[in-house]
Amino acid sequence: MIQINNLHKSFGDLAVLRGIDEHISQGEVVSVIGPSGSGKSTFLRCLNLLENPTEGEIYIDGEMINGKGVNVNKIRQKTGMVFQHFNLFPHLTILKNVTLAPVVLKKMNKEQAEKGATELLKKVGLEEKASSYPAQLSGGQKQRVAIARALAMEPEIMLFDEPTSALDPEMVGEVLDVIKELAMSGMTMVIVTHEMGFAKEVSTRVLFMDGGYIIEKGTPAEIFDNPQNDRTKSFLSKML
């Protein structure tokens, strides 16, 4: 489903990604772990072209997304993204946050979108907040709305960029529960996270990144219980 060949990304002189090759199949839940500055967020952001790769190719459903003349907006509709800082639209109600993109992009008419949005808000347990504004919600609630908002575009792939890092500890659980449920529904997901327990529980595969490379990859059991690389070992020993 996603094929990544020799992906490089530099910001000026700073090389953040130095050659990533990876294949992610339909229905996989891939967690990306690694120390700060290892390039994991940049890697994720390249997958929906929030960052433009300096070199290399990314294919989604066999279509090269970072080629010349591709419709970036069309490609982004296939990939939903959830951000560390939620990035809800503060001037819109919760319902409007969810319906904005489907309506503006004419994927649905207003009634369909509102029906779908109510359904999604029910799924994340926030239907009664539909007419509230983001400022009236807690962090955990905001992030659940952000997930609903991304799902409203009916993406094939969901990207999570440290979805719980900005949350108070007691709110992490409610967000992880929603992500877990989504993972079990068969959605293809890539999750950048510092929640090792969560990564272990929910992922089908784990990538360990450091210094712009994928250093080690494998099943959660392989990575967490029996890491081979020294850097993986030392990272995990600090985390657990």
């Binding site: 929906n48 929030l50 907006n73 069309k74 982004r76 509709q77 990939t79 939903g80 993204m81 951000f83 990035n87 809800l88 639209f89 904005l100 993109a101 503006v104 992009l105 952000a146 908002r149 991304a150 575009m153």
Partner: peptide
């Protein structure tokens, strides 16, 4: 970024 990630131009 949130707007663009949803596919808005």
């Amino acid at each position: 970024e949130a707007g663009r990630s949803l596919g808005l131009s």
